[in-house]
Simulated assay, not measured.
Amino acid sequence: MNGPDDSRAATGETAISAALARLTRAVDRLEAAVDRRHDADRSVSGLEAQLQRLGDDRSELAAMLDTAEARAARLEDANREVSRRLVSAMESIRSVLEEHGG
């Protein structure tokens, strides 16, 4: 019963087994590639969300800076006005003291 047909059948089974093994490896590689792509897509989505948050934070910080700069300008104006008034008051006091011999 070990004739030429048996040899061809064994060779055919070996070829099918080898082809099935190659197909299995190819499917495994494809699944791994899909997983990597899925992970990369999630990573990109995460980066986009983080970039959006950074942009929002930047806008908020810019608004806070504008507010702080405006406040600083108002304080500088108030400081100049107070200094002007103090100089005026000191000149008035000096004038009064000179008039009264002080």
Rank of each mutant, 00 (worst) to 15 (best):
D5H: 15
V82D: 00
E99C: 01
D77V: 09
R58Y: 13
P4R: 11
R80G: 03
S92I: 04
R36G: 02
N2R: 14
R53L: 13
E98N: 03
L75T: 03
E91A: 06
E99V: 01
S7W: 06
R42W: 00
S7D: 09
L86M: 09
S83E: 06
R85M: 07
L23I: 12
R84V: 04
R53W: 04
V87W: 02
G3V: 07
D5V: 10
D5R: 12
L51I: 03
R85L: 15
I16G: 08
D57G: 07
S17L: 14
R80E: 05
A63M: 06
R84T: 08
A21Q: 14
A78V: 04
S7H: 14
A72H: 10
L51T: 06
V34S: 03
L47Y: 07
R71C: 00
L86H: 08
S17E: 05
L97G: 09
A73M: 02
T14H: 06
V82F: 09
S83C: 00
E31F: 05
R36F: 07
H100S: 04
L30N: 08
A10R: 14
A40P: 00
A10P: 00
D6V: 02
S59Y: 02
M1G: 13
R80M: 08
S95L: 02
N79L: 11
D39P: 00
T24K: 13
P4Y: 14
A10H: 07
H38T: 13
R74I: 02
S45Q: 13
R53M: 07
L97A: 11
D56Y: 09
L51K: 15
H100K: 05
E31Y: 06
R84F: 05
R42S: 04
G102P: 00
